[in-house]
Design a protein around this nucleic acid. Structure first.
Lengths: 267, 267
DNA sequence: CGCAACGTTGAAATTCCTCAATTCACGTGG
DNA sequence: CCACGTGAATTGAGGAATTTCAACGTTGCG
């Protein structure tokens, strides 16, 4: 096991390319600060810098730890919540990968987002008190449950937490605006390039390779997220590969030229 | 002047169809509770039920009133804020109509939203402290300025305000998800139908006619918001008119059959 | 081993965009 | 008050991008 790292996310540690079904973690102390049977505290979690505790001091994190329930774990395909269900808790992803889906009255369904470790899920339910989307695990995942009522109470006591929570929600808004821009004004290959670069950036921020990773979602799910049909996604992947910009083999992606992938975005 | 109405929004009062350049207001006590030279307080504002004070008690609204600055007014075309500018304040729209625009590195611009009275603008800037979008008045508008630092302080003192603010941000997220669904999975005419029905609903919620209103934005701006070209928007309007679902004349819209417009959305 | 889900590829069909011409609405200045 | 100019809107024809339909290959799981 790697030595414990208290500095939050080790930005320059690059993981070996994850093999197809192998777990994702570059850092091995997610989940425990002493031994694997221990429940991790936010206090010692590697994701601390990315997650809810970011910017809190020692004492504040300890108080946050008192309300967080770390027991929730999901198998691939499990629902974390369903549209229409009551909001009980927000969830921070400790390990794994989720998607959220909205579904329209007429049955049309669309992936609203893909979520990875350190990210917070469930904020869309605050407005009405009910979830507006389904959240489904794309691989076995572990989650920290944050009971919302207690969280609001606590964030009242801890201004720093409240501010950070506002920032997280606001970032969710700007993220959505980015997707709107993508859906409204980009062509198929541009969309896919944006998607790949976004994944790359998020993996890198968690200490994984920015250029080699495994997709957790199908072509159809990618297409749904990007407003494209699965065949279009597949063709775009093939085209990128023929251009030598990436290597794709099923779910395994290698970005061979990050710069050129970025250039593809500007028409 | 109409008699003062303390019940928030008069949902069943329908306005005369606004003439082309006439002001929008169905309710005449927006802006004053005694005489027109007086500055309105949230306490007496007709929009109270839709805006930030919703759900606050008398005392809480009075405290909110102490930090709100009601002086900001914009002429058509004026910027409320620009992308990159520091977040100073959030703004509640008292009268008028705004659009927010994001612009991509390569110059592509997209309308992110249209905003009308009672709505809050500026939340996208909380994440980074800088505005991510431009906000531009589509007609002469008056705004309530809410200095953000003071607001966060106050919402710390008033849990009800904090909760309501969370709800407002969350609703912004679900609104954006709705737009993503629209952009990702609907065809041109469906998008326009959704757009018209959404406007209709929002006008109705403010006491105006759900079936007759004036657009404040150009075909190009509608298209930008919906991910379509202006010609496509124009053709869709014409098609709806030929079907007898709406009447369009330039900016003036009459929805002749709300039900049928709704049916157009399900393929 | 075989089935089922996933992925790739091709050809035809559709939707939307681009380009272009024309009309309309509105504000300005003669 | 009218003429004019400008920006906005409508409409048509042709073309480009994406979807649809279909066939086939691959992967992984029971």
């Amino acid at each position: 096991m790697d030595k414990e790292n208290k500095m939050g996310v080790p930005a320059h540690v690059h993981a070996v390319p994850p093999s197809d079904r192998a777990p994702l973690f570059a850092v091995t102390n997610v989940g425990s600060h002493t031994a694997s049977h221990c429940i991790t505290l936010c206090e010692t979690c590697v994701l601390r810098g990315l997650c809810l505790p970011a910017g809190l001091n020692q004492n504040e994190v300890e108080r946050l730890d008192t309300i967080v329930n770390r027991k929730r774990s999901l198998k691939r395909g499990d629902y974390l919540h369903r549209a229409g269900g009551e909001l009980q808790s927000l969830y921070a992803i400790r390990t794994g990968f989720l998607k959220t889906c909205m579904l329209h009255d007429d049955g049309r369904e669309q992936v609203a987002g893909f979520h990875m470790m350190g990210e917070l899920v469930g904020m869309d339910a605050i407005g009405s008190g009910k979830h507006v989307s389904d959240a489904i695990a794309l691989e076995d995942s572990e989650l920290c449950e944050i009971p919302f009522a207690e969280f609001e109470q606590l964030s009242h006591d801890l201004p720093a937490l409240q501010q950070h929570f506002h920032r997280i929600m606001s970032r969710e808004i700007t993220r959505d605006h980015g997707v709107m821009l993508l859906l409204g004004s980009m062509r198929a290959e541009e969309r896919l390039a944006v998607f790949l670069l976004n994944l790359s950036k998020r993996f890198a921020a968690r200490g994984y390779s920015a250029t080699q990773f495994n997709l957790r979602m199908t072509r159809e799910e990618i297409g749904s997220y990007l407003g494209l049909k699965l065949e279009t996604v597949s063709r775009a992947f093939s085209h990128f590969q023929n251009q030598g910009v990436i290597n794709v083999q099923n779910k395994s992606i290698e970005i061979k030229d990050l710069g050129r992938l970025g250039e593809l975005i500007n028409r």
